[in-house]
Amino acid sequence: MKAFLIFILLTTILECGCTNSTDICPNVKTSLGSIRKRRHLTFPDGSTVVLTISLVKAFLTHAPAGWNLAIEIDVIYPLPDAKFTNAHFRRKLHHRQKREFWERLQNAIDSHSLNGRACVIRIICEAKSHLAPPGKSLVHDLLRAIFTAPIHEEEFFDEVRDSYRELLEPNFCNQINDCPFSILDFILSMNKQKY
């Protein structure tokens, strides 16, 4: 009886091992371990990401007291929920999300009496040359993912045709820009500070 149970156990183990290996079982084309269905990341309804840029300047009126001036810009970006993911299952969402993020950043800069469109275009142009090669810095990789313009892709071309037509011109970075300062240099200089 013990020998029979050991035989059944060994047969079961070999059968399970055979289903996941293509070398032992030639009739299996791909191993079951390598098959993976496409998955999408979804968040609970109402989830958002907030990008906050803060600038604080201290003014000493008399020692040790003083005044602090704080300026903040909040850009609220909604995250995709299950309805959004199901509605756009096969489309390239990152082009639309990138354009929407640029527009929100443009509106936030516009609210401070600056040319937000010119500043966004300046960031896109500077991202081509000022960022480290991929894999060297997480901050640089994140900025590259947000501020690159893949104009050679047809889906991106269709997405930005109405809102950022300047990006479709071949030498858009060589044109004069109306943004008074470099937001990308500001972000990268914060990355170098030691606390």
Rank of each mutant, 00 (worst) to 15 (best):
H130R: 15
E159R: 02
E126H: 12
E153N: 13
K136M: 02
I76S: 12
H140Y: 05
Q106I: 08
V75L: 08
H112Q: 14
L168H: 11
I151Q: 07
E154Q: 12
S111L: 11
H88Q: 09
D74Q: 12
P133V: 10
A149R: 00
G135H: 05
L69V: 14
S163F: 07
Q97K: 05
E166D: 14
K136F: 01
L69C: 14
R90P: 01
R122L: 12
K128W: 08
C179F: 08
A145R: 11
D110L: 09
R91C: 03
D141V: 00
I187M: 00
V120E: 04
I176R: 12
S189L: 05
R165F: 07
V120W: 01
R165L: 03
L188W: 00
A145F: 07
R144N: 06
W102C: 04
I146E: 06
P134S: 13
F156K: 01
D110S: 14
Q106M: 14
S137D: 05
Q193S: 01
N174W: 07
I73K: 09
I183F: 02
F156Q: 06
E100H: 13
N115V: 05
F157G: 13
P180V: 02
I121H: 01
C125F: 08
A65D: 13
V160S: 05
R91I: 06
K128H: 12
K136W: 05
L143I: 02
G116W: 01
K194E: 02
R117W: 08
K194A: 04
K136I: 06
K192W: 03
G135S: 04
L168E: 11
R90D: 06
Q193D: 00
E72A: 14
Q193I: 01
I71K: 15
P150E: 07
L138I: 04
A145C: 08
A82R: 15
V139G: 00
A149L: 06
E154F: 06
N174F: 10
E72W: 12
Y164V: 04
E153H: 09
I146W: 00
P150W: 06
L79S: 08
P134T: 11
N115M: 03
Q106V: 09
Y77V: 15
A87L: 14
S182K: 01
L167T: 10
S137K: 00
N171K: 11
I124W: 04
F181R: 10
L114S: 07
F186M: 02
W102T: 06
L143D: 00
L168M: 11
I121L: 15
F186R: 02
L105P: 03
Q175F: 09
G66L: 13
A145W: 01
L142N: 03
I146P: 03
R165A: 10
V120N: 01
P150R: 08
Q193F: 02
E159F: 00
Q175T: 13
E72Y: 15
E103D: 10
E169H: 04
P134W: 03
L142F: 03
D81C: 09
Q175G: 09
C179Q: 10
R96T: 04
R99G: 02
A63F: 14
P78V: 07
K128E: 13
L93P: 05
L188K: 03
I121F: 04
R117A: 04
P134L: 08
N68D: 12
